[in-house]
């Protein structure tokens, strides 16, 4: 019984952060900021949900699959974010007007 209550608490916190991440995806001004908010919050939220499922289920094969899912999400989602950010910058999608500095652009112009 206690196990289920703790697991449900983890799931609730996870869904809350999922929601904040998606809100950031809608509200923030350009691709890079959206990527920041969405990657951090949705990764953490989904990991929280899977941890809650693991706590409720315990050490059977459902629980182990959830644990494997946590490891998998933590390894893959930053890599995908990095690839998308680099591709966006190289294909020339502009940063928002509020940007103060872009040292990547400066270095690229130096090389050419």
């Amino acid at each position: 019984m206690t196990r289920e209550v703790i697991g449900m608490a983890f799931i609730l916190v996870g869904i809350m952060f999922d929601f904040f991440g998606v809100l950031g995806l809608v509200r923030l001004p350009d691709v890079y900021n959206r990527l920041q908010a969405a990657t951090k919050c949705v990764t953490f939220g989904s990991a929280g949900i899977l941890l809650g499922v693991f706590i409720i289920q315990g050490f059977n094969n459902f629980g182990f699959k959830a644990l494997l899912g946590i490891v998998f999400i933590f390894l893959t989602s930053p890599v995908a974010a990095h690839a998308i950010a680099r591709a966006a910058h190289r294909s020339g999608i502009p940063l928002t007007k509020e940007t103060v500095v872009d040292q990547y652009q400066e270095d690229n112009e130096l090389k050419d």
């Binding site: 904040f20 950031g24 900021n33 908010a37 919050c41 872009d102």
Partner: peptide
Amino acid sequence: EMMKANFHVAFIVIHPYLPIKPGIVK
């Protein structure tokens, strides 16, 4: 650090005026 990051993002997203000052540094 990750916990701190999530609360930071949550604060920015809820704020009505979006207090950001973005840039790319090295």
